[in-house]
Design a binder for these strands. Structure first.
Lengths: 197, 197, 197, 197
DNA sequence: CATGAATGAGGATTCATTCAT
DNA sequence: CATGAATGAATCCTCATTCAT
């Protein structure tokens, strides 16, 4: 499997650095090759084309999220606790790797529709796990049993995503982690803090 | 004022169509000119450069949102009603113009950092109005007076944005408008539906 | 005759200023029109095309040189005195109008071969008068009767031209007029200062 | 060193031909590439941009002049002999390569100020060698010890330049080489042929 | 496996000129 | 006579990808 060869990871990591430091549109294949310490042509022994590199970057990094989330789901207690830990984990990973945060929140979104669709397909696995938490919570009565799961998932993910993107756009000027509990609280209770009928 | 001349609007509208139908990176100036029914050079009598066209597209269309929202704020009753109407308005405008939805949710985000920053600056005005609604609601006791407005705003906008983007990515396959009341309900009440302490 | 109409001269003078201040390649028709205080289209009521403007500039200004030289030839005494006065005149006119010097020595030479050929045709009249002085001097025995007039003319004109061009290129940093007598002396006596057999 | 690679010279030579045959403003990069037998993109592996090609053309060809002149200075006897050989050499090189003559005398002068300044800097080396000959001759008493070297240099170079430019403009219709000894004679003895006091 | 020199398609922008008013 | 909005042709350069070594 090519994904186990050392140069594969070498190139993926080089891509993250190059994209974070130069921006999506200035991340030429030759720059990535140089950063990875290989020749331009070598890239094409491990990746079909440039698009394949970008998607692989997302895939490799997403794996970390998915695995953490699987662990959280298996070892958590209540659904709201799982949700909290999912939020914390999401914020933590990106707060600790600003290169990665820049790449996922800003740069990779500049890719064309085709790539974005493939990225979204990869993201789906993560969102499916989120759905699991939500559904479990609904069944258990922790979450509103009448809510639309899709909308709920979009609210959770959209809020997290928007928060982190804003943080990146503001050049990491404030403490992202302090935001996590507030996000959790607001997602659970909504704007009113008490149910509106 | 050039922005009042008919050709200005003609070109902006042409740009929306061309970008929606061809994608951001395939939206050449010559295509926009052709769609607008003017010569390539005419574009440059109304716009400084291609970037200026793209920003103007966003600005012109954003004006519709901002003006509607200003109207909603002035004529609405309760804060939660204003929020509801804001959400409805946002969904309605884009549900009725799929070209525009494609452009704002997918294509325009492929632009480079410079353009994105300018787009974000325009967006701020809209978000400021959203903040007004939220703050008013907190003062009136309709919204949780203890909540962090920034996070609340990110939740509202992030949820709306994520919902619409998903709809566009799924190629408009379901009824977006049916989503609006659910989004409203979930934003107000949160996942639990009852306050969690 | 169009050349007697006030706007004709107005445009020619505007062209000199615009070319001197912006350079040949930045001297657009619209800039010349603006400087002349007329509309772009008006230019074409007085000139066939842009090339026609440039040639007219040279022609109008060359007239000054030619008329002065005709006067010098008619009123001078010895041939070497005529030559001296011709040199002085050439240096004087350009020393007093740095815009004109910039235009004739640097900017107008950036024009294409076609224009340069037409400019050279206009220059010929001036060079013919120079030939007259030289031939008269040869007949009178003031100048070497055995010399090749064409080469002699090229030496005189080439030396003057090179001197003035160097002065313009050095941004008028030294006194051009102090150069005139030295040029005259060297042209008459050559490098040796005494005849070489 | 890129300048030693065969393609470098190949492209420079192609540029001379293309410029000579099509004129400066019609010498597109793609034409030069085609003439050189390489792809357009290959040009940019050897040259930074089009301006770099043009300057390199002048530099490469000027090197021939400078090296010949250095040889002449080292191996010549009297100063006037060195001057004669310098003149002969200048005329010879251009008489034998009409493409080059067209390019240096007419086409390259159409370039913008930036390029012209760089070309002039290259030319200075050549003129410095000319100054050496003149100064040596003054010290030895072969040339007028009282003359202004700058003016003398301008006379020598201006005369040669004017002669060759005229020849090119007249489309090589007469024998340039026959001109060389006359130029030499006139430069040394001046117009009078006998000293004027 | 690895290299890196070579390829060549593709697009924003300027500006001389026209012509309806 | 005068205007100035509109025209549209024309070109340098980048960079993903290939393939001979």
């Amino acid at each position: 499997m090519k994904r186990d060869k050392p140069k594969y990871k070498q190139i993926v990591d080089a891509a993250v650095i190059v994209i974070a430091e130069n921006g999506y549109h200035q991340a030429q294949v030759s720059k990535i090759a140089k950063q990875a310490g290989v020749a331009d042509g070598t890239i094409y022994l491990y990746f079909k084309n440039k698009e394949d590199i970008l998607i692989s970057v997302f895939q490799e990094k997403m794996t970390v999220f998915v695995e953490s989330l699987q662990d959280i789901i298996q070892n958590g207690n209540s659904s709201s606790e799982k949700l909290s830990r999912m939020i914390d984990n999401h914020f933590n990973v990106l707060a600790q790797d600003r290169h990665l945060a820049t790449v996922t929140q800003l740069e990779l979104r500049q890719s064309n529709k085709e790539i974005r669709l493939k990225i979204n397909a990869i993201l789906k696995e993560y969102l499916k796990l989120l759905d699991e938490i939500l559904i479990e919570g609904m069944l258990k009565g922790e979450f509103n049993p009448a809510m639309d799961v899709r909308i709920a998932r979009q609210m959770v993910f959209g809020t997290i995503d928007e928060s982190i993107t804003t943080w990146v756009m503001n050049e990491f000027r404030y403490d992202l982690l302090a935001t996590a509990p507030k996000v959790r609280y607001l997602l659970l209770n909504g704007l009113t803090g008490t149910p509106v009928l």
